[in-house]
Amino acid sequence: MSYLKDIYRSMSSMLSGMQLTGHYFMNFRKAETEQYPDNRLTLKMSPRFKGELTLLHNVQNMHKCTGCSACQLACPNGSITILEKRELTEDGKNKKRLQTFVWQHSMCTFCSLCVDSCPTGALKMEQRFEFTVADRKTLTKTLNKEGSQLAPDLR
C-alpha cells in the first residue's frame, strides 16, 4: 500500500511542477529578461550608477578640479594620476593648477571613493557603461578637456 502511496505522491509532486512551467508557457506575455542591445536607446541607468568617471565641465569649459590630489590618494588601485603645473594668478601668487587628469580605466574598480573624497565635487561617475575598445592604450584617458579652466570661484 505504501508502495502505491509513494507512486501517487511522486506523480502528484511532478505534476504540480509541470503545472507551474506549463502555466508560464501558456501565459507568456513579456520576457523577464533585458533585451539589451535592442533597448539601448530607451535604457536608462539609475542616476547613481557607477559608470565612466568624468570631470564635470560646464558650458564655458570650466571644471572644478583644483589639482589637490585627494582623489589620487583615495584611489585604492592607483588608477588616478594628477599632473600639476605652476601658474601665476592675477594677484601674483604662484599656485598649483591641474595640468592633466589621467584616469586609467583598465585599473578602476568603480568604488567611487574618488568622487566621495573630492572636496569641490568636481568628479562624477557617469551612466555610460559600454567601454569596449580594440586598443588597450585608449583606456588611459585624460579627463580634463582641451583648454579647460578652473572655475573662477575656486581660483
Binding site: 541607468m45 547613481r48 550608477f49 568603480f110 568604488c111 567611487s112 566621495d116 561617475m125
Partner: peptide, 19 residues
C-alpha cells in the same frame, strides 16, 4: 543599483555610516 550605484560589488558602507 539605485541605492549604491553598482549591482554586485557595491561599496556603499564607509566607516561611520553610509557613503
Amino acid at each position: 543599483e539605485e541605492v549604491c550605484g553598482s549591482r554586485l560589488t557595491m561599496n556603499y558602507i564607509v566607516p561611520g555610516g553610509l557613503m
